[in-house]
């Protein structure tokens, strides 16, 4: 019973609770479907998760800073377009690796710029992040549609397939990419002064400034970095689908927010870690792959994700915590 109590309190308990849920789910699905614990299924999960994962990390940092970035998916789309055009400019499917690298650099710059612009409006004008990023989202969506007339851009060089579909020692390359980015993100947030400043700004911007932190620069930087992650997601998206279209991945926007909350991020900012969010992502992926294997479609998985978030939030709420305490007291 003390274990139950630990589950419901503190960041360590948070992780343990998520691990427990994950273990139960994996056990359940492997009983329900013999194909669940096969290399093929694990591999396909490893290819599917990184995209949502990267976007979730891009959402995570702004939430920690007390905001929200609703423009992540369209930022990723615009960055993908930047890469696509660069490649088209250098001959499409025949473009050399230089064109790809140049395109990636351009994409990252575009993402950083879009993010920095949002950050600047939020920090220096003091407008509400939801509103700013919402306007940015509408703008980028419109920009993308205007530039592409709603059409796909496809026909990339073959080597891009490696990025989207290749494996290194049986580990999907997108997963490796995600792992590296997640590690960097963890270090950035937990170990650098900039990350520290992000947490402090997220819990009280004015007090952070009074303590001598450059909160405004922190905000600009964190949104810019969020934009950079969107760019990486956009590049990966192009490599996975072998095409770029504005609106690709649109449905992932609110799922990323869901994953962050599931991972115990404080919706008001100031508290939250990368590791539980990754656990939350794995749980979501297991739910969707598992349901898929036992014959349900992605829509049911979406519904289950929503219901699952409600269940977890209900369990975490003070009301149910008191209930658990009540029961555990009876036992002792």
């Amino acid at each position: 019973m003390t274990y139950l109590r630990r589950l419901t309190s503190g960041p360590k308990g948070e992780n343990a609770g998520l691990f427990l849920i994950l273990a139960v789910l994996i056990l359940g699905f492997s009983i329900a479907s013999p194909r669940f614990l096969t290399g093929a299924n694990l591999g396909s999960m490893g290819f599917q998760m990184p995209l949502l994962g990267l976007l979730t990390l891009a959402m995570l940092a702004p939430i920690l800073s007390g905001g929200l970035n609703l423009a992540i998916v369209y930022t990723a789309n615009i960055c993908g377009l930047t890469l696509a055009w660069t490649i088209m400019h250098f001959g499409g499917a025949d473009a050399g690796i230089f064109a790809f690298v140049l395109g990636c650099v351009a994409a990252v710059i575009v993402g950083a710029l879009a993010g920095a612009m949002m950050g600047a409006v939020i920090a220096y004008v003091g407008a509400h992040p939801i509103l700013v990023s919402l306007a940015m989202m509408i703008f980028l969506r419109g920009l993308g549609e205007f530039l592409t007339r709603g059409r796909d851009i496809s026909g990339f060089p073959d080597y891009m397939r490696v990025l989207g579909h290749g494996s290194l020692m049986a580990v999907p390359i997108p997963l490796i990419l995600f792992g590296l980015v997640a590690f960097a993100w963890h270090i950035l947030l937990r170990r650098t002064p900039h990350g520290f400043s992000t947490y402090m700004t997220g819990s009280n911007m004015q007090a952070a400034q009074y303590a001598g932190l450059n909160a405004k620069r922190t905000l600009v930087l964190i949104y810019a970095l969020s934009g950079v992650l969107c760019a990486i997601a956009g590049i990966l998206m192009a490599a996975r689908f072998n095409s770029v279209r504005v609106g690709h991945g649109e449905a992932m926007l609110l799922i990323t927010v869901l994953a962050c909350f599931l991972g115990g991020i404080d919706p008001f900012g100031g508290h939250g870690r990368v590791v539980p969010v990754i656990l939350a992502l794995i749980i979501l992926q297991v739910l969707s792959s598992g349901l898929n294997l036992i014959g349900a479609n992605q829509h049911l998985a979406t519904a289950v994700w929503g219901l699952f978030l409600i269940a977890v939030m209900v369990l975490r709420s003070d009301q149910s915590r008191q209930l658990i305490l009540l029961f555990s007291r009876k036992d002792t």
Binding site: R191, P193, M200, S203, N204, A207, G212, G270, H271
Partner: peptide, 26 residues
Amino acid sequence: LLQKQSIADNTVISVLHKLTTATGLI
């Protein structure tokens, strides 16, 4: 003070530069 944050974080908030090592990490 940042009421939501820990005692430790509130204590070191103004001297982050003293906590970083050569790698730039806290």
